[in-house]
């Protein structure tokens, strides 16, 4: 830009312009650059290169194409696609979620279970996606949350993409885990989905970080602690509780849709 402003006064010499037009390869890089950036800004000099209607016609035709031409190699498309779904801040968290799942299975295989044969897998299942969702939206975990919140993609479309990405990691992981330990789907899938949607629904009111903390604490106090203390299977993990979890899920999804505009504001990142 500096050079561009300077160029507006100093027109290139006739000799240099002729060499440029001829396409000489031995013009020094800085001279070449100066001529080009000058020509861009200076119609009279473009006219010196070629009679005016021709130069202008070529220029008008060329300019939009050149504007589209990438002047450096494109970034890895794969990476770009992944970032379209997974929040760039969530990567390490997703890896951690898989590790925790694997650890829960390993402990289960080693015979470590809580109370009346409640597998650790079931106890961690609802918490795992909450971590992923928090990593995708939380002010504390996503450094670029304010930039993201101000963009047109922020809001429900991005919430959907990022949550789907979290579930795409969590659900297959838990499915594999439940196959290994031989547990049914209903025992973990519905609580898992209900907690995911619940975090977003509550987060639309109080912010995702707070919602995640509240829900994880509630799960620990209401379900995990009594299970350990009284060594019994909590009713919430019985098959009979499935309709309840489904109702919670439906309610949460409704709330998310109703409160969707919250995700376009900073308040959802709190």
């Amino acid at each position: 830009m500096n050079a561009r402003q300077g160029d507006s006064t100093a027109h290139p010499r006739e000799h240099l312009l002729r060499r440029y037009a001829r396409g000489d390869v031995d013009i020094a890089a800085d001279e070449l650059w100066a001529v080009e950036s000058h020509l861009e800004a200076c119609a009279p000099c473009r006219a010196r290169l070629a009679p005016d209607p021709v130069a202008e016609a070529v220029w008008t035709e060329l300019a939009p194409q050149l504007a589209l031409t990438p002047q450096m190699p494109r970034a890895g498309r794969w990476r770009g696609r992944v970032n379209g779904w997974v929040s760039p801040a969530a990567g390490p968290w997703l890896a951690m979620i898989l590790l925790v799942t694997a650890a829960a299975v390993a402990l289960d295989r080693l015979g470590v279970a809580v109370g009346d044969r409640v597998s650790l897998v079931h106890l961690v299942a609802p918490v795992l996606p909450v971590l992923g969702v928090a990593a995708s939206w939380s002010r504390a975990l996503d450094p670029a949350h304010e930039l993201t919140a101000a963009t047109p993609r922020a809001g429900l479309p991005l919430v959907f993409r990022r949550t789907a990405a979290v579930l795409a990691v969590v659900v297959p992981g838990l499915a594999a885990a439940s196959l290994v330990i031989g547990a049914g789907l209903t025992q973990w899938l519905l609580p898992c989905l209900a907690f995911t949607a619940g975090t977003l629904a509550l987060g639309a009111f109080v912010g995702i970080t707070r919602a995640a903390v509240v829900l994880i604490a509630a799960w620990a106090v209401v379900i995990v602690a009594p299970t350990i203390a009284f060594s019994r299977t909590p009713t919430a993990l019985n098959d009979a509780a499935a309709p309840l979890w489904a109702a919670v899920l439906a309610l949460a999804v409704t709330v998310i849709v109703v409160r969707r505009m919250a995700f376009t504001r900073l308040e959802a990142n709190r």
Partner: peptide
């Protein structure tokens, strides 16, 4: 101005351009 440390400069601006549709 928060950013993703492991992103390349161009990747980061491209990501924001994508977010800006």
């Amino acid at each position: 101005f928060g950013f993703y440390k492991r992103f390349k400069v161009r990747e980061f601006v491209e990501y924001l351009a994508w977010l800006k549709e």
